[in-house]
Design a protein around this nucleic acid. Structure first.
Length: 846
RNA sequence: GGCCCCGUGGCGGAAUUGGUAGACGCAACGGACUUAAAAUCCGUAGUUCCGAAAGGAACGUGCCCGUUCGAGUCGGGCCGGGGCCA
């Protein structure tokens, strides 16, 4: 029999599935539904191996669920707006749309080579006006619902290129193209009011029991709920200053009051004090990243004002501007208690302010307890705090809150770290924001009937500033309210918006509204979502927000978009360098005796650690090359083998070879089988080797089914290897062999679909494996009537016994004591105790 | 610094959730087939020690301690690696 020709076979089956519309989404009302979705790709131009791993897993689940009788929705699309297209446009002079669609076409071809069970009729790109028109409608609806507002916010401004930069375009505080120092500028921008759902986004995490614990924890930390108080200090200039604190209990340890450099009061004071203005400017140079602010030296500027302690009008605290106080958190002003907050402590030490401990840990003496370089943030009893002395931290918080509330100086509040989502981007390749600026009427929403507001086809990229704003005609329009001259908002939406609801659009890509109500009611939530951990926070949080906003706007009735989430690991590869330290690609080196050499020249090279495949380190393997050599089934099998799916997997040539060998082995096993009865032949009662093979068959069904259902692909693969070994080793012909081979083929079906079809055909079937039901194991065959029981003496294994399943305790004990090894281990001593765990183990304690 | 996750053969990893540690795969070694190689097939294999061999013994899941008849699995404390938040 000829070797399996993956190339011919895969092409043939892909065409056959296509021709029969096999993977169009079925809507058989008698079946349950299953929505399987992988995070859709950015059309960079080529599929990388991380995509292959992601889509292989999704495809296995989709095919498995199909075979189990579900209506499966398994779509694919393109997250198609974004910076790379703009860069290509600027550098190569191409139209970003043309560039993007050419990439999509190339990547679609590559994906199709993988033989994925995708319903391609539902494909769309987020840069299609047919998609983003609905996104514009959602924006208008959210606006109506009060979930969209306009506010001033800082942006990174490149003074040379006269353009707003994305955070990732700021490198070491400088514009990535111009190299000019980036400035912070205030612009009026659009926000989504995600904080309206802070509490719900947090508490609903508990309902997501099919999400990784890690992701839920990350989201929880990101939302960052903390309970505290807002209260005010009376300032020496006659005004009140409101601060936020999570530690009102430490109020008697206060040494200073600090304002954010961005606080309105700071700005007011700086207007009259050039030195303060200079200090504020210095603070802003650090950038907006919290981490940078945290690591920077704590600096302050004395305003000359004082603040009266809320519980002692004669106690005056200095008011300073401090670089570590964030405007976005709380009120942008704090009171500093150095003994119990690390940042306050560093600040106090620098400026020689008092450090008075007011919370004393259990067992320490309030008279002698001191704080050194580390603030004390643990529990304890209050001291040096007048009426709070002796209280626990919790009681003291309560007491302070009660008194401040009674005095009308403060309120208890819950504060969240989560901020509203700034969605305006001053970028030309994105979804236009459907708002219009009229000199008379102000900011006016576009009419729904005018959607989509399409991007112009002729965007000039080599201009200063935002190309959309610079376009000669695009922004000019008439006011939807008064009909007078007006201009469009020239900002576009953050591309995270595009990916926040695409899963809902897939339910019906032809709907006249953003979503079809019946379709989303049926298909959502996504039953299994798969993607990288890098989206653990933003993308998933934004999608969760969108579902809530869409629910409020009346589009959906569900609470959460993704019932099941799986985050897969990365694909890694060894790294190589030549003697000058330059990176070498895997195909530039050859291995001999565990050492690597430059291919051709024989010059030695060094092997570095295995790292995530990346262009910069050149440790990449092109999926299309692997598919060309071995076929898609081999690369799919590799992606599922050995390593648990959530962990990083290492690509090795040896591993790929062994997968290829297994493809051939299965083909041989099936195609060389002789004397099989025709399909559907009945199996007579059997015993001996034939019965053993039947048992192996049904145990394999049970094990693989369970492993696939719980996404333990590596275990399913191991089970299949073991089963293939059992078939090879069994000299059993006839109907029992047919049953075993057919089972093997059906079990590999979701993982190696092309090979499975070829084998199925070779076994005489006319129907696709893709249309064949998943096998069901026979419980009578998975259970065996004898069991092997381990026998221990004093916890150490001394032998095993073979007894009938559920055998009598006495029978088991007798068999255990009959073992020579047991007698030897006992060495004449009488057993004190015998523990018998049915069907498992006997432990004799002597 | 806080919180979380992970440490098992030469390697990737299994282990019925407290019950025979090392399944399955890679690499390795021995053999068969072959003029030879590739491919394929059969076999060996945690470590150390005893034995000519059959076989046997001790040790063994990062380290220490504990709970238990029994611990890779549970608890406490270290060490190392990674992640998130600071």
């Amino acid at each position: 029999m000829a070797r399996y020709n993956a190339k011919d076979s895969e092409k043939r089956w892909q065409q056959a599935w296509d021709g029969a519309s096999t993977f169009l989404t079925p809507t058989d009302a008698t079946r349950p539904k299953c929505y399987v979705l992988e995070m859709f790709p950015y059309p960079s131009g080529r599929i990388h191996i991380g995509h292959v791993r992601n889509y292989t897993m999704g495809d296995v689940i989709a095919r498995f669920k199909r075979a189990q009788g579900f209506n499966v929705l398994h779509p694919m699309g393109w997250d198609a707006f974004g910076l790379p297209a703009e860069n290509a446009a600027r550098e190569k002079g191409v139209n970003p749309r043309d560039w993007t669609y050419a990439n999509i076409a190339a990547m679609r071809d590559q994906l199709k080579l993988m033989g994925l069970s995708i319903d391609w009729s539902r494909e769309f790109a987020t840069c299609d006006p047919a998609y983003y028109r609905h996104q514009q409608k959602l924006f208008l609806d959210f606006y109506k619902e009060g979930l969209v507002y306009r506010s001033e916010a800082d942006v990174n401004w490149d003074p040379v290129d006269q353009t707003v930069l994305a955070n990732e375009q700021v490198i070491d505080g400088k514009g990535w193209r111009s190299g000019a120092p980036v400035e912070r500028r205030k612009l009026s921008q659009w926000f989504f009011k995600i904080t309206a759902f802070s509490d719900d986004l947090l508490t609903a995490l508990d309902t997501l029991d099919r999400w990784p614990e890690k992701v839920r924890l990350m989201q929880k930390n990101w939302i960052g709920r903390s309970e505290g108080m807002r209260f005010s200090f009376a300032l020496s200039n006659g005004r009140d200053l409101e601060v936020f604190s999570t530690r009102p209990d430490t109020l008697f340890g206060a040494s200073f009051v600090a304002l954010s450099p961005d606080h309105p009061l700071t700005e007011e004071l700086a207007a009259k004090d050039p030195k303060m203005a200079a200090f504020v400017a210095e603070c802003r140079r650090v950038g907006t990243a919290e981490e940078a602010i945290e690591k920077a030296e704590k600096l302050g500027y004395d305003t000359g004002l004082t603040a009266a302690h809320p519980f002692d009008a004669n106690w005056k605290l200095p008011v300073v501007v401090a670089n570590f106080v964030l405007m976005g958190y709380g009120t942008g002003a704090i009171f500093g208690c150095p003994a119990h907050d690390q940042r306050d402590l560093e600040f106090a030490r620098k400026y020689k302010l008092a450090v008075l401990p007011v919370v004393i840990p259990e067992g320490a003496d309030p008279k002698t307890f001191e704080v050194g370089d580390e603030a004390y943030v643990g529990p304890g009893r209050l001291a040096n705090s007048r009426f709070l002395d002796g209280m626990s931290v919790e009681d003291a918080k309560d007491e302070v809150a009660k008194r401040l509330e009674a005095a009308g100086r403060g309120t208890r509040t819950v504060n969240y770290r989560l901020r509203d989502w700034l969605v305006s981007r001053q970028r030309p390749w994105g979804c236009p924001i459907p708002m219009i600026h009229c000199a008379k009427c102000g900011v006016v929403p576009a009419k729904a009937s005018d959607l989509p507001i399409k991007l112009p086809d002729d965007i000039a990229f080599n201009v200063k500033g935002n190309p959309l704003a610079a376009h000669p005609t695009w922004k000019h329009t008439s006011c939807p309210r008064c009909g007078g001259e007006a201009v469009r908002d020239t900002d576009t939406l953050d591309t995270f918006v595009d990916s926040s609801w695409y899963f809902a659009r897939f339910c019906d890509t032809t709907a006249a509204d953003p979503v079809d109500r019946a379709a989303v009611d049926y298909w959502l939530p996504v039953d299994q979502y798969i993607g990288g951990i890098e989206h653990a926070i933003l993308h998933l949080l934004y999608a969760r927000f969108f579902v809530r906003a869409m629910k409020q706007a009346g589009y959906v009735k569900l609470d959460e978009p993704f019932a099941g989430l799986f985050t897969q690991g990365m694909v890694c590869h060894e790294t190589y360098k030549d003697k000058s330290g330059a990176w070498l690609a895997p195909d530039e080196v050859e291995k001999r005796d565990g050492k690597v050499f430059l291919k051709g020249s024989g010059e030695p090279a060094t092997i570095g650690p295995s790292e995530k495949m990346s262009k910069s380190k050149k440790n990449v393997v092109a999926p299309e090359t692997i598919i060309d050599i071995f076929g898609a089934d081999t690369i799919r099998w590799f992606m599922l083998s050995d390593t648990p799916p959530e962990r990083d997997i290492e690509w090795t040539d040896e591993g790929a070879d062994s997968c290829w060998k297994f493809v051939q082995r299965i083909w041989r096993l099936v195609s060389e089988a002789e004397g099989l009865p025709p399909p559907g032949a009945a199996i007579a009662a059997v015993d001996g080797a034939a019965l053993e093979l039947r048992r192996a068959t049904h145990r394999a069904i049970a094990a693989v089914t369970e492993d696939l259902a719980s996404l333990r692909f590596n275990r399913a693969v191991a089970q299949i290897y073991a089963f293939a070994n059992a078939i090879s080793g069994a000299d059993v012909p006839g109907a029992v062999r047919r049953e075993a081979l057919e089972t093997l083929v059906l079990l590999i079906g979701p993982m190696m679909p092309h090979l499975a079809e070829s084998c199925w055909e070779a076994l005489g079937h006319r129907q696709f494996v893709a249309n064949t039901s998943w096998p069901v194991s026979d419980a009578a065959l998975t259970a065996s009537d004898t069991v092997t029981i381990a026998v221990q003496v004093n916890g150490k294994l001394r032998g095993t016994i073979e007894v009938a399943k559920d055998a009598d305790k006495a029978v088991v004990e007798t068999a255990a004591f009959a073992l020579d090894t047991v007698a030897r281990a006992l060495d004449g001593k009488a057993p004190r105790k015998v523990i018998v765990v049915p069907n498992r183990i006997v432990n004799i304690v002597a």
